[in-house]
Amino acid sequence: MNIFRFAGDMTHLASVLVLLLKIHTIKSCAGISLKTQELYALVFATRYLDLFTDYISLYNTLMKLIFLGSSFSIVWYIRYHKIVRRSYDKDQDTFRHYFLVLPCLLLALLINEKFTFREVMWTFSLYLEAVAILPQLVLLQRTRNIDNLTGQYVFLLGAYRALYILNWIYRYFTEPHYVHWITWISGLVQTLLYADFFYYYFQSWKNNVKLELPA
């Protein structure tokens, strides 16, 4: 474990907590894409298949349970909670996320480190996570006004993967044979997808104006 990865995990945890806080306290999911939340639940479900078979550390197991539990409960809240679901904007959240799942699955079957079920599922979760934010970014473009919590949520979600890139660089230089091209490239693509959001997020923060994404 290194400081970059720990900071990345804490940032990722913070993003999930910000979202749960928003949904649980103000009972609203305005501006939140259910599609992205469903994709993230699928990412964790396919990535943590080793939850009960490989014990790495208490930290690792605990964080996996938190990410699994929070992502599925967020999907539940937006889909079934009688108050929260009313604020879900299904007419705007129209990204066809199945068009993301299938290509990622095919790509995972073609490009992976080892053609085993677990490894293909794990690779699929990496490719899917890289694009899972797209429905959310599209929704932000449409719903002009982005409230603070939603903006912070997306920012933290992007920042965690950027910190992971620093972690990979650190591990590459400190651990012999630590080479994982698939992880690195999908992590880089994921972070780049946030690039324009980061730009507008910092602009709004610097000029102290409301966050607005260009149409």
Partner: peptide, 10 residues
Amino acid sequence: SEEEDVKDEL
């Protein structure tokens, strides 16, 4: 055989 590279990252 190569040591099973355990996925230690989240």
